[in-house]
Simulated scan of single mutants.
Amino acid sequence: MAVVKKNAKAADALPYKERKTRDILVAARKLFFEHGVEAVTIEEIAEAAGVAKTTIYYKFGRKEDVFAAVFDQLGEDAVADFPGEIDRNACPRETLLNLCRQLVTALANRELMGPEPLFLLEAKRKPELGRKFFEMGPGRMRTALQDLIQMWVDQGKLQVEDTKEAAEDLSVLCQGLLPIELQIFPDLKLSEEEIEHRVTRGVDKFLKIYGAARG
Rank of each mutant, 00 (worst) to 15 (best):
M141D: 01
G36S: 07
I24W: 03
K126G: 01
I24E: 03
I184N: 13
G36E: 05
E43K: 08
A39E: 08
E64M: 00
Y57D: 01
I42L: 15
Q183G: 14
A90P: 11
A90N: 12
D87M: 04
L97Q: 05
A39T: 05
R140D: 06
I180Y: 12
V172Y: 06
N109I: 02
T143I: 12
G139S: 11
L170C: 02
L148I: 15
T143M: 12
A167W: 03
A28E: 04
I209A: 13
A8R: 14
E135I: 08
T54I: 03
F206Y: 13
L207S: 07
L31K: 01
R131K: 14
E122H: 13
E181A: 10
I42V: 13
A39Y: 00
L170R: 01
G75L: 01
P127I: 08
E18C: 04
P117R: 12
F32M: 04
A123M: 14
A123Q: 14
V26W: 00
Q175H: 09
F67V: 09
Q73H: 02
M141G: 14
G130W: 10
A212V: 02
E116Q: 13
V70D: 03
G137L: 05
L177F: 13
S171Q: 13
K20L: 08
V70I: 05
I42F: 02
R201T: 15
V172A: 01
N98L: 14
T95A: 10
A106R: 15
R201C: 10
E196R: 05
I180N: 05
K30E: 07
V203Y: 09
V160G: 04
P138R: 10
Q155C: 03
K205G: 04
I42R: 09
P186T: 10
V51L: 07
E196Q: 13
R29M: 08
A166E: 05
